[in-house]
Design a protein around this nucleic acid. Structure first.
Lengths: 126, 126
DNA sequence: TCTAATCTCCTAATAAATTAGGAGAAGAAT
DNA sequence: ATTCTTCTCCTAATTTATTAGGAGATTAGA
């Protein structure tokens, strides 16, 4: 990865970000408690450090522990992950992705129609 | 990764699979020649071995070199990658994913409508 | 046949991601 | 004040992913 692509979150990084998106600002203990896998305190801390270094989290001393909070929104992160996948697997075409969803039966005509409709409505309100 | 998830392709693995999906059965040299990054012959070979071990490729001696061919289709692999992303980032909901595409302006109402239409047509023919 | 060019296998170095131990600081409890 | 706990930082072991070297086999061509 040549300097670029440092946006991407690894699996564990994502899980940790998700805890913080869900709970809001957290210290190490809170994140650790919320993770389904049992991880050592220091493991969680290392990951939080990495995320902080990558600019995904900011932190602030609260009491005697740091409290970490998200710098990027979940929407932004998922948008980015999606963009990556589209570029890497669907030749950059989001239509291809949607077609793939349909072909693999992960979504159907009804759902698409429903989404279109919801879209129209939102469009109308805006 | 507890035994499961061994479906997932890493970045380089994916690139190599893509060469084979595009060109059909290939030997090491052919894959190496087709990759944009310059990689050593043995590097490509190691990756092909790994992919073979993972069951993504099968191989057959053709002349004096192995010829590797895809066991999984591109559609299947991309379907799986998509499923993973949906599970990991969109709480398992493909609708959420599509909404995210829309919100991040990676696809718009027109496209969705077009897709729906194309779907109807295909439905009609089937 | 002999040589040069592959190609395979085995091995391993490097890098990135995940996991965690230990020392010391600093507040809390007695 | 002394002890106990909790938290930070620094460090590093482990695992997975990427990269590649070298020995020996086999074949093609002179």
């Amino acid at each position: 990865m040549g300097e670029r692509d440092k946006e991407a979150l690894t699996k564990l990084e994502l899980q940790i970000m998700q805890v913080i998106w869900r709970l809001g600002p957290c210290n190490v203990a809170a994140v650790k408690a919320e993770l389904e896998q049992p991880l050592a305190y220091t493991t969680v801390q290392t990951m939080l450090n990495i995320l902080h270094k990558k600019g995904k989290l900011k932190r602030k001393l609260r009491g005697r522990a740091y409290e970490y909070s998200a710098v990027v929104t979940e929407a932004k992160a998922s948008g980015h992950a999606l963009r990556d996948l589209i570029d890497r697997m669907f030749g950059g075409s989001s239509e291809e992705l949607v077609m793939s969803l349909i072909k693999s039966k992960q979504i159907d005509a009804e759902k698409i129609a429903e989404l279109s409709k919801r879209l129209e409505e939102e469009r109308g309100e805006a």
